[in-house]
Write a protein that binds this DNA or RNA. Structure first.
Lengths: 199, 199, 199, 199
DNA sequence: CATGAATGAGAATTCATTCAT
DNA sequence: AATGAATGAATTCTCATTCAT
């Protein structure tokens, strides 16, 4: 944590933790500083403002996420397994970072920081969708998938896997208050996604 | 706006508008009051606190939403058309109320108001999923759908239709910054949902 | 409570109760109204403002108090018994009205209502002291008391009997937290007052 | 005012001044801040709330007062002179701090902060009375005073000296409106206290 | 560079007072 | 005359940001 870069990162990860838990407005700069073991003033040496810190944190996480998807896309495995890996990644991240993704989406729409992260978010979304499309295109080329619109399919995958992750990581944690007891595992999900509803 | 009930409703709808745009924390009670054409103090005649107003608004919207889905479920049409109507409803609401649903989801998870709306949210989610499951069960009974886990299918529908609505209503509004030009219509979506990816 | 006068009085007595318990600033007009079984607006038919209500209430109580002392002064008994009756009155009122007297004294000094009740308070004080002086003068004339300065003696009586009343009515109610277990009765007090400390 | 401790004290003394003048409820935190030449927020760095500030101030003053009485009790002079010094102290403080003592008494009884300072007040009262009792016991031992109940005598001294101080410092300042022109000096008071009324 | 004490703009909330009914 | 819904001025408290050390 001695050199400049790692202190910046320490702050980013503390910010991640606090923003994740409290959302942008409820999060306190002082708590982020405490979490990072730095003084409150130090944060302002590395970031222009709370908003800037939030945006930098978001960018950082987006970049990491994109890298992780890229890795999967470039793996030497069949497209279906790639989608399965992607789903696993989603579940894992949701477990680690809660609804960070949703939060970013929301903050993008809301007034306030929206205008500052919108371009990054759109760029990120484009990249993510593009990478998923690649997997699907590969499946189409290999005659595994039908000639579906890859963009629609990608949206489909993102939306349903998010919902799936939310169900597993949040809703299922409120057992006392909730009670669906189905299997709800990855296989089940992939099956629905790949084969559709119709007989 | 003369009687007591409609003033309460006027405030709820102003709250909806402002919370939708700004989120819970950034929203100012004073602005909600102005929007409703009432004095700041009047809000506190009808609601205990800003948090209470938020929760009442959320409950109100959830009830309306549940009623709308119920209506669709009870329509005298085949299950596939029902799903299509549901998707249309989703798109319409997303257009009108932006990411309200997402916001509620987020606020439910985050510290702060979370504990106050969690029970309502879970109840709401249970009802919504239950209603969609009904449609799917009906499809299975009528031998239209395969014997899929109805819970998984419902989650699937919710997640992907949300994503679809988000794409259409938010992302496509940022044309300058974004540029996918596929069809992306309801038919395309239903097709993907019903038939799956695999050839 | 039908006629105008009794409604005014009902409000005064409700005000008394609430001001007594909460003091001027913490007392709420609405609560006084509720206590008096009248609407909030009705209070403003009878009193110009909260401050005015407070002052009228104070005046009312002062007048009653003066009447009660007068009655004692005019009783056909010896001066020492008169003083004893006065002390009993003090104890009784303290029991009924808590530290109302102290509160009026305080509010008289503090900024705010001070300037409005100061003249009444000073007038009241003058009368009270004057009446007590009368008793003492009577005692001096009847050769029961020494030729003490009646003004000083009156102050003495007021101060010490207040303290006595406070001890009995407030401090002794906090038994758990306090623990003097002396006799502390009226006789003891009168003895100290009349005979002094010195052997 | 450079070090932390003295800034806390500066705030305490500003609070003293404003609370003294306005009472707890009418006093504004902002004005206390201005008086102390600090920002409004600074007060909240040192005290949890307005109520906390009030209580800390009260405790501070009580401690100072107790120290001053202790000093008198330990002086190497006869008990009567000690009581005279105590009376002088009372007069001096009343001149400096108005009815602070009364105010504390009132706020202790009233709902609101009452429950927070009651224990301190009772402790303080116990100590004060205890110290005065010591002086009186000493007088009894030295055969100067008769075998009076020391507790009653102490209450007597406190009550009457308070009244005396109030008369001199407050009532006499309203000359235009008031007009008793007796001697009313310390000697007169001591005389009444020591020798009583009866011939 | 790093810090955290100091700041004050800004927000939620309260409540005396008004006024249409 | 009586009411209480509506109001907004006023107040406490929070917290992002600054800046002297």
């Amino acid at each position: 944590m001695a050199d400049k870069k790692s202190k910046r990162e320490a702050i980013i990860y503390s910010a991640l933790k606090i923003f994740e838990r409290d959302g942008f407005h409820k999060a306190k700069v002082e708590e982020i500083a405490k979490e990072a073991n730095v003084g409150k003033g130090t944060i302002y040496e590395y970031f222009k403002s709370k908003k800037d810190l939030f945006c930098q944190m978001v960018k950082h996480m987006m970049d990491l996420y994109i890298d992780m998807i890229k890795e999967i896309v470039e793996e030497n495995i069949d497209p279906i397994t790639k989608l399965q890996h992607l789903l696993n990644l989603q579940l894992e991240l949701a477990k680690k970072h809660g609804a960070l993704g949703h939060m970013i989406q929301i903050e993008t729409i809301k007034s306030g920081i929206g205008k500052d992260i919108k371009p990054y978010f759109l760029e990120f979304r484009k990249k993510t969708i593009g990478l998923i499309e690649k997997i699907i295109e590969e499946g189409i080329e290999k005659k595994l998938f039908k000639k579906i619109d890859t963009y629609v399919a990608a949206l489909f995958f993102i939306g349903s896997s998010n919902q799936f992750a939310f169900e597993i990581n949040f809703v299922r944690n409120c057992k006392d208050e909730y009670d669906h007891e189905g299997k709800l595992d990855v296989e089940e999900f992939m099956n629905a996604f790949l084969k559709g509803l119709i007989k």
